[in-house]
Computed example of a mutant assay.
Amino acid sequence: MTIMQRKARSESADEALRAQTQGGLEGMIIYSLVATGVCAVLHQTWPLFRRQTLAGKAFLVSGAGMSGLVIRAEYKLQRYEYKQKRIWNEERKQASAQLAREGSVGSEEEIKRWISDQRQLDLHPPTNTTITLTTSGSYLTQDHAPSVHSSKSNSSSSTTSSSPKVILPQRFGETETELENEVLDVLVKGDE
């Protein structure tokens, strides 16, 4: 197990502990308050309960508080685990779909590697992303390159890059410069 995996597991365990602790405290307070209210009502309305000692009444309230602590803590922990499982399943679906688009069958190891790579990108996003815009016929393609510039070309493959491409259809009557400016505006807003 790598250091990053240990750190992620430790953070996940800490987050689960915080959720469970918070749930336990909430449950203890709520159940104790409800039990105190019930004891007060019973004390005022039922003579047999009124004759019970203070220790007996406190035992009922503390028993309800401990029950609330356990029930609510377990509920919060199960809810946290459910959320984590949904996130994990969603990541696995995305990984399988992406690997299928790339033409490979997603084995367990490949899926884990893809998820790990995505998490690394989430932790350390590229800081200096620049774009090359190239027009080809009625389409505008976007490549990640060292500088921002626009070039007109009639060839369909003007760059041989392994970086991702986005193909945007050019709208009727829109000039290439307007479309390039719109794409740049969207990308700049996305980086902010």
Rank of each mutant, 00 (worst) to 15 (best):
64 A>H: 00
24 G>H: 00
167 I>G: 00
122 D>G: 14
56 G>C: 08
74 E>T: 05
111 I>M: 03
36 T>Y: 15
121 L>K: 13
100 A>P: 07
141 T>P: 01
39 C>G: 08
87 I>Y: 08
187 L>D: 04
45 T>P: 06
101 R>E: 13
19 A>Q: 04
61 V>L: 01
30 I>N: 10
79 R>W: 09
84 Q>E: 11
112 K>M: 03
170 Q>L: 09
11 E>P: 04
130 T>G: 00
67 S>F: 03
153 S>V: 10
60 L>P: 03
135 T>P: 05
49 F>N: 01
29 I>K: 10
94 Q>W: 04
172 F>I: 06
19 A>S: 08
68 G>V: 00
185 D>R: 12
141 T>V: 02
50 R>H: 15
64 A>W: 00
128 N>K: 07
179 L>M: 02
182 E>K: 10
71 I>S: 04
145 A>D: 15
157 S>L: 09
92 R>P: 01
185 D>G: 11
136 S>A: 02
40 A>W: 13
49 F>V: 01
124 H>W: 10
143 D>M: 03
50 R>Y: 15
131 I>F: 04
98 Q>W: 10
187 L>K: 10
68 G>A: 00
1 M>R: 07
99 L>C: 07
78 Q>F: 04
90 E>L: 07
186 V>Q: 14
87 I>T: 01
99 L>S: 02
28 M>F: 02
14 D>N: 01
145 A>P: 03
35 A>P: 02
12 S>P: 06
26 E>D: 14
117 D>Q: 07
130 T>S: 03
29 I>Y: 06
79 R>K: 13
166 V>N: 06
144 H>D: 11
149 H>P: 04
122 D>V: 13
105 V>S: 08
54 L>E: 12
26 E>F: 06
101 R>H: 14
109 E>M: 12
12 S>C: 09
170 Q>W: 02
74 E>N: 12
147 S>Y: 08
181 N>Q: 09
176 E>D: 13
69 L>K: 01
34 V>M: 05
27 G>M: 00
40 A>D: 11
183 V>I: 08
36 T>V: 13
116 S>L: 14
93 K>H: 11
120 Q>K: 13
119 R>P: 03
46 W>E: 01
162 S>G: 14
163 S>T: 15
163 S>K: 14
113 R>N: 09
30 I>Q: 13
118 Q>F: 12
63 G>C: 11
122 D>N: 12
156 S>R: 05
104 S>A: 10
30 I>Y: 13
47 P>T: 10
100 A>T: 13
113 R>W: 11
77 L>V: 01
185 D>M: 07
62 S>F: 05
132 T>L: 09
102 E>S: 02
52 Q>L: 14
105 V>Y: 06
47 P>E: 09
69 L>E: 01
64 A>Q: 00
35 A>L: 03
33 L>E: 12
165 K>S: 04
61 V>E: 05
31 Y>E: 09
37 G>R: 05
16 A>N: 15
134 T>M: 04
